[in-house]
Amino acid sequence: MLGKTAGGVFWLMRYMERTENMARMIDAGLRISLTRSSAAESEWTSILNANGLLAAYLDKHQEVEGAKVINFLLRDRANPSSVMSAVEAARTNARLVRTALTREVWEAVNECWMELCALLDRPAKAQDLPAILQIIRQRSAYVRGSLAGTMVRNDVYDFARIGTFFERADNAARVLDVKYYILLPSIMHVGSASDNVQWETILRATSSARAYQTLHEGEYDPRMIAQFLILDKRLPRSLAFCYRKISDNLDYVAKDYGDRRPCHGLVEQICHRFETMTIDKIFEYGLHEFVTEFLADSQALGRQIEQDYRFYE
């Protein structure tokens, strides 16, 4: 397998995952702004922040305003993380590694791109947004499904999966990074309506609301939510779950190639922390500090994988 191909499938799946996550975040923001217009501005600001896009947005726009933010996150090609930019980048990577993909996977990516090009041809009307966001999520699921259903389980598949979980964990961590303060224990806020909505937003943005309700009998508790998103290995979007998967897939590559590389050590360290951590320890240590360190570790791991498997010259 070419190093370029490993990098190409990794990024293809990262961008597909990003497309979907962006749609989920827009959806979460939309809900808040519909139900509580007073909180809308700060909600959109935190979404921009979570994606590191606030400065880029403010370069183009005077103020944080729902319709403009949505347009920026959905369609703006100058924004490299917009849905349109991400899906285009996914497709470019898919073209680059076309020979490593099955026809089904390629067509799922290409069809996703074609449909979004048509859908996002002009600014989306407010009433069309929910449907558009749903299509984006479905298209992304379709790509993941084609991958699972048609690809040979070899190194190509492993790198594709690593890309998916890497981006997913990154996204969840970023949401936690900008929202951590509403999860901190504080007597004043407990049980207030405002926080219920905020907590729900976090769960929605990480597509975990329904799972949380099922597993925790509907009771919102900031500590439980943090525990759920960081440590619960049943949740396919928790940090611990994603890192278990990344570690598994890197192990398959190691077995396949018959050697372990520095990235295996790094991922082991990260996983070990999740194994030994409890939510109490995390709060004791500082939720924000924990998430910040996680993001730094994860970036280092990304660079190491890239180097170990020669994505670039």
Binding site: M1, L2, G3, K4, A6, D155, V253, Y257, Y309, R310, E313
Partner: peptide, 16 residues
């Protein structure tokens, strides 16, 4: 960009 001459052969950069 995937190729270079290594030991008198044209070789491609793979993950291994």
């Amino acid at each position: 960009a995937d190729l270079r001459v290594v030991d008198g052969r044209v070789a491609m950069r793979t993950t291994r």
